[in-house]
Each structure stands twice: as structure tokens, then as C-alpha cells.
């Protein structure tokens, strides 16, 4: 199985390749990239050097151009596509149907992957993208069980890629109305449900309070472990109950389900975390590479102990092996 690893910076890309990534995904430092965060991402020159570095070591580079073009400013997205193709990207990860149509028409040799931001979660939707735009792979939303993924794979002819580690969106990907309500920003366009400029941490008494768009999400004793500041994993008062009313403050770790995902027909395993450091990338990638190598050799995969690196320092197998409350 192909291990698809995150890189928010050239240093993280080198760390991923050195740690054994089969593929690395990254994006430009502009609005075409859903993870357009402060201090992250690649210039054209940096991407060119990164692709040379990865190719020299047998790894692929997938470029995420996964936001939805703003009306009248399509040229920015078209230029990003053309530059990624010119620089030798092995595939482009796209979400917008208009941009997919443009890519299929203007760059017919380019391998296209459907971003998770497109939220294509059933065979009809996936086959439509494959038929009209020639996508070769779909990144599945993190809301499907292993059995549902197997059923989808029986009805489609393209590859499937699934998330196995990192931040866990429990909504229709990128369409969280809760986040839009709190921040006034679309997660689809800004790539995150907690934009950093809307997150604030303040000390109140002996506690640290995390707020998003002015709304308190959780309160933890200073120095204690804190969850990621997303609304769906916040601790709220609802009626007489106080707790995580939407989802526990956990992130995804499906490492022990990888054999089942392989049997379900999954081709590629994605690690989330372009916003994380090169230290995180190196540790996670080498751990998951040990699993894919063991599987390829017919050995029992090693058990991974990665909770420390998970957002919120606690992990779940997510929808792959659980049901909603």
C-alpha cells in the first residue's frame, strides 16, 4: 500500500522522504491550497527542488490545489495547475469540478486525484468524477466504515485513499456550518475549521481557556494536556450535561485497521498533518512505513504507540470501526 505523507515545508518534505514516504503531498503558499497557513507551504522554486529531491529518492510528490476558485480569479488556480504540471508533480489533488474540467482539458496527461474536500462518499459521486474528469484516485471522507469502503471499492474502477492518522473531521468534509458560524470563514476555502487568527488562548485563574471566534471551546488547568481547538471536539454545557456533546477530543489512529483496509481494496494510506513539524512527520512516517513494509512482506504489522503525537493526545479509530452516538 502507498503511504501518502504530509509536508507543510521543504524541511518536512525531506523528513518524510528520509523516513520512507512513498508519496508526499504539499501545496503552494497561496489561496489555491486549503492549508494556506502562516509560515507554511512552498514557493515555485521550493516545489521544484522538493520534487527533484523526492524523485531522486524514489518518492512521488502530490500537489494539493484543493480550494474552490473565487469567481473572476480563476487564473490563480489555472496558473498553479500549470506550474505544478511543469515542475513535474506526480499528481494533483483537486476538489472543484470546474478546475477538474480545466485540468482534464488542458493537462490531459496529468494524473488527477479527487480531494477529500469534494466529500465524494458514494459510488455514484465517485464514478461521476471518474467519468467526466478522468480522476485516478479518490480520497475518501473520514465518515465511512471499513465495510462501506469495501462496498464502494466493489462499484468503482479507480483507486481509493483513506486517512489513517491525524486530525479527524466528523462532518461532511470542509462543510462544517459550526465552524463557519463561529469564524465567518469557509473551511473549504481556508482549509481548517479553526483558523489560527480566530483561535485565542487566555489564562483565567488557574485555567487556560481556548476560544474560537470568541466562543469558549474548552477550559483546562494550566499545564494539563489540552485538546485541539475545534468546535466539534469542544466541551460544552447542554441542558444539565457538560461534556463533549459532538465528538470526544481525540484524533484518528487507524494503524491497527490497515490489514482490514487492505482487504477492503484501499490503495493508499494518508497521514494528516501538513501543519505539523518535521519531527512529527519523521516519527509518524517511519512508524507507518514499518506497518506497510510488514504487510508487503506478509508479516504481522507492529503495534504502534503514537498517542503522544495525536491531537489531544488520545486516539480513535473514527468511523472505520464505530457508530455515532
Amino acid at each position: 500500500m502507498e503511504l501518502v505523507c504530509p509536508a507543510g515545508t521543504p524541511a518536512a518534505l525531506r523528513a518524510a522522504v528520509d523516513a520512507g514516504a512513498h508519496s508526499v503531498y504539499c501545496g503552494f503558499a497561496d489561496a489555491t491550497n486549503a492549508r494556506n497557513f502562516p509560515g507554511l507551504n512552498f514557493s515555485r522554486a521550493e516545489l521544484e527542488a522538493a520534487i527533484d529531491h523526492a524523485h531522486a529518492r524514489g518518492a512521488k510528490v502530490l500537489v494539493a490545489i484543493n480550494t474552490f476558485p473565487t469567481a473572476g480569479e480563476e487564473a490563480i488556480w489555472h496558473a498553479a495547475l500549470a506550474d505544478a504540471a511543469r515542475l513535474g508533480a506526480d499528481a494533483i489533488i483537486l476538489a472543484d469540478p470546474g478546475l477538474l474540467a480545466h485540468a482534464a482539458e488542458r493537462h490531459p496527461g496529468l494524473r488527477l486525484h479527487l480531494s477529500v474536500q469534494a466529500a465524494a462518499a458514494n459510488p455514484d459521486a465517485i464514478n461521476l468524477y471518474a467519468r467526466h474528469f478522468g480522476i485516478r484516485r479518490v480520497v475518501l471522507p473520514r465518515v465511512l466504515s471499513v465495510e462501506e469502503i469495501a462496498a464502494i471499492n466493489r462499484e468503482i474502477d479507480i483507486e481509493t485513499e483513506v486517512f489513517v492518522f491525524g486530525g479527524l473531521c466528523v462532518m461532511a468534509e470542509g462543510r462544517c456550518a459550526l465552524s463557519s458560524y463561529a469564524t465567518g470563514q469557509s473551511p473549504n476555502m481556508n482549509g481548517v475549521c479553526s483558523p489560527p487568527d480566530h483561535v485565542a488562548y487566555t489564562s483565567e485563574g488557574d485555567d487556560t481557556v481556548a476560544r474560537l471566534g470568541g466562543f469558549a471551546i474548552h477550559r483546562t488547568p494550566r499545564g494539563a494536556p489540552a485538546p485541539y481547538p475545534t468546535l466539534c471536539k469542544g466541551c460544552f454545557v447542554s441542558g444539565e450535561r457538560q461534556g463533549h456533546v459532538f465528538e470526544d477530543a481525540v484524533s484518528l489512529d487507524a494503524s491497527r485497521l490497515i490489514p482490514a483496509l487492505a482487504r477492503a481494496g484501499v490503495s493508499a494510506l494518508k497521514i494528516e498533518g501538513r501543519q505539523r513539524s518535521r519531527a512529527y512527520v519523521a516519527q509518524i512516517v517511519s512508524a507507518f512505513r514499518a506497518v506497510t513494509d510488514a504487510l508487503a512482506a506478509g508479516r504481522e504489522p507492529p503495534a504502534l504507540a503514537l498517542a503522544r503525537l495525536a491531537e489531544g493526545q488520545a486516539a480513535t479509530t473514527g468511523a472505520y470501526a464505530k457508530r455515532w452516538r
Binding site: Y201, T220, R276, G312
Partner: peptide, 16 residues
């Protein structure tokens, strides 16, 4: 590059 900033933050070792 020995420790991840988010890991340190979410463990409570760093605060911002």
C-alpha cells in the same frame, strides 16, 4: 527538530 511543537503544546509543556 527533536520534538513537535503541537505535541509539546497539547501536552501542556508549552503555552501560548
Amino acid at each position: 527538530g527533536q520534538e513537535d511543537g503541537d505535541t509539546l503544546f497539547f501536552s501542556g509543556a508549552l503555552a501560548i
